[in-house]
């Protein structure tokens, strides 16, 4: 590689385009679009947004999607939850494939109530077919539920619970002020 000592804005853009195009040529354009996520793809993130919104729906307070729960899950999947990567990939795929066959739509395109029913069927272990073998429906549902609740109700340092939204909702003051003596007598 030759060193670039000076890089003008114009040449940078030119290089970027060339780079992207080059990648496309090499991989025959099968690469997914560039993703801002760590593990999940852009398409998967749209699905995950819908799923976490089902677990914690928007009401007077932000729901899972807007509270950054998808970001929480993506972050953990390259950290402590690396061991769940495969289940996520398989589970997300199974959801989309099932929706395509049954409804000719993506999960996130279904009406909210339909999405809820879909997840209730997963929770009850009622999904059929090869995609859901070995109890993937229940297993993946439990992961989605637990991880969503963690992302929404856990510390914002892990990428969810944006602006302490769940703490505010539950009327808990954060951050805790150390050194404050709160006893009455």
């Amino acid at each position: 590689m030759e060193k670039q000592t000076k890089l003008t804005r114009r040449s940078f853009i030119a290089l970027s385009v060339l780079g992207a195009g080059g990648m496309c040529l090499l991989s025959r354009c099968t690469n997914p679009p560039l993703s801002p996520w760590r593990f999940i793809t852009v398409q998967e993130s749209n699905l995950l947004d819908a799923l976490v919104e089902q677990i914690i729906p928007t009401d007077e307070w932000l729901g899972g999607r807007d509270a950054g729960v998808t970001n929480f899950i993506d972050m953990q999947l390259t950290g402590p939850y690396t061991r769940y990567q495969e289940t996520y990939r398989k589970g997300l795929m199974a959801i989309q494939e099932t929706c395509k066959t049954k409804f000719q739509k993506r999960f996130e395109e279904l009406p909210f109530e339909k999405q809820t029913q879909f997840l209730e069927a997963m929770e009850a272990g009622k999904m059929e077919g090869k995609l859901w073998e070995k109890g993937l429906d229940r297993q993946f549902f439990r992961l989605i539920r637990d991880h969503s609740l963690q992302g929404f109700y856990g510390s914002p340092r892990h990428g969810g619970n944006k602006n302490n939204v769940s703490y505010k909702m539950m009327r808990l003051d954060y951050p805790v002020i150390i050194g404050q003596n709160r006893y009455n007598n």
Binding site: I56, T116, L149
Partner: peptide, 10 residues
């Protein structure tokens, strides 16, 4: 999970 669960929490 869901709406009812969130409301209970609050």
């Amino acid at each position: 999970w869901g709406k009812e669960h969130k409301a209970f929490q609050r």
